[in-house]
Amino acid sequence: MAGRLRNLLEERRRTGQEEINAHYGELAEMDAVKQLEDFIKQRSSPETYQSYRGLIGQVHTDLRELEQKLQNAHAQRMHTRSGQSHHPERVILYIDDLDRCPPPRVVEVLAAVHLMLALPLFVVVVAVDPRWLLRSVEHHYRELFMNSMGTPGFTDAENVATPLDYLDKIFQIPFVVPPTTPEKTARLINSLLEALETADSPDAEDESDGPTARPDTDAAVDSARETTERGDEAPGTYEAPEAPGGGSVQLQLEEAERDFLARVGSLTTTPRATKKLVNLYRLVRISVSPEDLPAFVGTRETPGEHQVVQILLAVLVGTPRQSKTIFQAVQEASPNTKITDVLRGTSAGSGAGERVAALIDEINESTPVTMDSSLYQKWCLRLARFSFYTRHLIR
């Protein structure tokens, strides 16, 4: 009897132990699932990897949040039947100066633009030199944009992706701005001079609520004065005389100067280069001493040296890559040689010297132009300091 009870108890113990083990297995499995769920929930939280996200991730988050807020605002207006007519329907983003950024940043911005264009809320307008975009994309993805011989698995050029293909997937409507014309450049120069001289007039501050800001001009004048204080070689003095009632005589151009600058400005091909030409000429003009100013401006019968300065600056700004060759040719020419003959004899690429000479001849048909090479030689080295391309000429 005792043996039978012992066997029965042993059997129940084994059964109970098996049930306990089974429950432990179930608990362990449930605990593993719970831990996995907790882990996934934790890692799926946006804050988990926030510190590791770069520009693109941050931009994507901000854009989604902005879109949601505007959608909520629009829904609220529709619900309340608000009579307000001025409300944002689209966000238009303008991007400029992208061609001043390093290639990695350019590619990041392009990726951000691609994200924005995927949302109906955004319209993106990018003003940029396409050459910079292409070189930046090519540099950043150089392993992808190999030629057909260097790309494994491809045997013909049609199967090789290019930077243009990459840009074509981002920009839906490319629009190429046509090059400027001499007429447009002349209008721009006159407009710039009018705005700058109005700002320099003694009544400019009286007509405004505060002082007029002229960063380009003021910086140029301060730089010129600083150069003189250091004792560097510079033409004339930077103690600019004041016009009656205030203002600077050197910054008030004569009609002959304005007209000539508008014509030689046709050598520049972009608004940025045109503005640079205007600023450089004003910088040089303010350096001319009062006693030398009449000869610098000249008369209708006797052309002034301002023509020489404007022509050389137009070469410096309009054809920067060829300016060193042209300036060297001018420096090495015989002082008695006509400047047009010197220019036509240069070896500057793309016929830059020929174009400048042709422009001088064209202007000379209606307005006498200084042809004395010695005057150009006088100003060459003084003006060469205003360009990286001609920096080696300074000695």
Rank of each mutant, 00 (worst) to 15 (best):
R321L: 14
V91C: 05
V297K: 01
L277D: 01
T367G: 01
G83D: 10
W132G: 03
P271H: 02
E354V: 14
E37P: 02
S208P: 04
L70D: 02
D209W: 06
E229Q: 14
A243W: 05
S289C: 13
T61S: 15
R100L: 12
L293F: 13
A352F: 03
N190F: 10
L283A: 10
S136P: 06
Q328V: 08
Y52E: 13
R6E: 13
P368R: 07
R64E: 12
P103E: 10
A127E: 11
R344V: 04
D361V: 01
E65K: 13
V128M: 01
P179T: 14
Y141V: 09
Q172C: 13
N147V: 09
D129A: 15
L283Q: 08
G265D: 00
E233Y: 14
H87A: 11
V278S: 05
A240D: 11
L393F: 03
Y238C: 05
T155W: 12
V297G: 02
T337R: 12
G236H: 02
P241E: 07
T228D: 09
W379R: 04
T15Y: 11
L267V: 06
R13W: 07
S45L: 12
S136H: 01
Y94K: 08
I339L: 07
E207A: 15
Q331H: 08
T269D: 09
H60I: 15
R285H: 04
D222N: 12
F171G: 07
R395N: 11
I360Y: 00
T299N: 06
E65N: 11
R214C: 11
P241M: 02
D372G: 02
I92K: 09
D168E: 15
V59G: 06
D216Q: 06
M149Y: 12
E205K: 08
A314Y: 02
L293S: 07
L27W: 09
V109H: 01
D62V: 11
L164A: 12
Q252R: 14
I92D: 08
R53W: 08
S387Y: 09
L98G: 08
E362Q: 05
G210Q: 06
R300P: 00
S82V: 03
S373Q: 02
D209F: 13
A220F: 07
H60L: 15
L36V: 04
E254C: 07
V128R: 00
Q252W: 07
V177G: 05
A161Y: 06
E255N: 12
R105E: 14
L383Q: 01
S191T: 08
V107N: 04
P235S: 08
E354M: 12
L312R: 01
S191D: 07
S208C: 11
L316E: 01
Q377C: 00
Q50S: 14
E29H: 11
Q68T: 12
M1T: 15
T390W: 03
S201C: 04
R81C: 07
N72A: 13
P320T: 04
Y24Q: 14
A314M: 06
R321C: 00
